[in-house]
Design a protein around this nucleic acid. Structure first.
Lengths: 161, 161
DNA sequence: CCATAAATGATAACATGTTATATAACATAG
DNA sequence: CTATGTTATATAACATGTTATCATTTATGG
């Protein structure tokens, strides 16, 4: 059966990237399933952000993950219920809630960082090894390109109308 | 604010591809908003599949789009409510429901194909123009690589454990 | 100082993907 | 022919993203 998304090329690049991303996450999930805490692979970036940057307010977290604030608010609630993060109202500005890893969350990150993340990284690197170019650079260029000029500002060049 | 997904590299490639894909779709949405029928950009691949391959059963449609059957069932219901497709129970095998474009759906596809899709294609091509390699080929290689050996079969090489 | 604007996060409603499972129709072994 | 397994689709429950909107707190202009 023909893969329509694939044969439509640039027209469906968005659908295709999403599809590949979902599959990568599902694959990574299988590597994470060995850990003691049952957690979706999509939640790990939030934990990794807190581990890397330290405690962050909800909005800062959203910005550093490239997600919207309501999405992050929900993930934080979920992770707080699991006891992996805690959100504490800021002393200075009472609107801000600063999110940080709990002991349990830090322990999970440490284990994942030691036992699982290197395996995921090496597996993905292996997947990309034989590609003709530096894929990450190209994705960066796509992201930068979108930030500079979104698609609707690129329709002049070469399009029929 | 640091972009954590980006700085984590291969580890978060899945999240990153999803994020880029969502942004591309959101951008494409703005180009599609001019059309008479209000439709999310993510629904167009289904219409394009029917236009390209002709009437298809729900399962075949799912396969050609690389989605699961329940997702396609829901999209078909939505598009049927909008009068863009119709699903007719197969004569031979009464389990199958064959989905096809209605007149209205075909008209929408024709207009989109003439007025909008070329603009999206050229805009995305423009976005990818200056990249160092043939991105589509690389994405194809990633997809093929995942199909050949999912990530959890790639952890041996070079990983710490 | 107070009125108003801006910033922060929560919530609701929706979109669209998934997995798990139910139901109905078909296929086949006995 | 019937029991049983398989296939095609539907449905439910959930995950996780979005936009729109609200309440609260903070900042600011007069």
């Amino acid at each position: 059966m023909e893969d329509v998304i694939r044969s439509l090329g640039y027209l469906c690049l968005g659908s295709r990237l999403k599809r590949i991303g979902e599959q990568l996450q599902a694959d990574a999930q299988r590597l994470l399933d060995g850990l003691e805490v049952p957690l979706q692979s999509s939640q790990y970036p939030l934990l990794a952000a807190l581990d890397k940057l330290g405690p962050l307010a909800v909005g800062e977290l959203a910005q550093s993950l490239g997600l919207t604030q309501p999405g992050v608010t929900r993930s934080v609630s979920l992770l707080a219920e699991l006891g992996l993060v805690e959100a504490i109202q800021s002393d200075g500005d009472q609107r801000r809630r600063v999110v940080s890893l709990t002991k349990k969350g830090q322990r999970l990150v440490d284990v994942a960082k030691r036992d699982v993340w290197p395996r995921i990284e090496s597996a993905v690197a292996d997947l990309c090894r034989d590609l003709s170019g530096p894929v990450l650079d190209q994705l960066a260029a796509i992201e930068d390109g979108l930030a500079t000029a979104p698609l609707d500002r690129r329709v002049k060049q070469g399009a029929r109308q």
